[in-house]
Design a protein around this nucleic acid. Structure first.
Length: 152
DNA sequence: GCCAACGTTGGC
DNA sequence: GCCAACGTTGGC
């Protein structure tokens, strides 16, 4: 079982949206490195930290679990969708999504500021490869984040 | 809204 | 396969 951090812009899709819906297809990933991870490495049962980016206070805000392995992202075929890709065809789809199950909204979100201020998190991809939207999280860091986020 | 970092495209 | 031009991300 692996640990991940998935980024989302809360104006587009937030942890509150995931809580309300209970589960969702994590669509719209249009970056090859992120796609390859979804397709080859993310597995059912993996734990996923949800991170809000491009907002007033970027932070880790909640927890989800992978409940469905990679499948074709249908929006790549929809000309009206934001995530339309005219080079994708149904026999040769480029993009996949995984399905997530809502688990938890954190009592205390861990802000990017706090992550950057703590040496424990210095080698996180969030710090070193900040643009990658599907990030790996080491078990020790995952546990530390959970502990901080669940504390009052 | 700015801009640095970095991913993608396409001509050669 | 190189690399310049261009597009996107995301913190600030």
């Amino acid at each position: 079982m692996q640990h991940w951090l998935f980024k989302t812009e809360p104006e587009t899709y937030s942890i509150a949206d995931l809580k309300r819906e209970g589960r969702c297809g994590w669509d719209g990933i249009r970056n090859y490195q992120a796609r390859n991870r979804l397709r080859d490495e993310v597995a059912v049962g993996d734990q996923v930290l949800i991170y809000h980016s491009s907002c007033a206070e970027p932070a880790v805000v909640g927890l989800a679990e992978v409940c469905g392995a990679a499948r074709t992202d249908p929006y790549q075929f929809d000309p009206d969708a934001r995530y339309y890709d005219p080079r994708s065809t149904p026999d040769q789809p480029r993009w996949v999504l995984v399905d997530l199950l809502f688990k938890e909204v954190f009592a205390t979100p861990l802000t990017l500021k706090a992550i950057k201020a703590d040496a424990l998190f210095a080698d996180m991809e969030l710090v070193s490869k900040s643009r990658l939207s599907i990030q790996k999280v080491a078990p020790a860091q995952f546990d530390a984040i959970l502990n901080r986020c669940r504390a009052g």
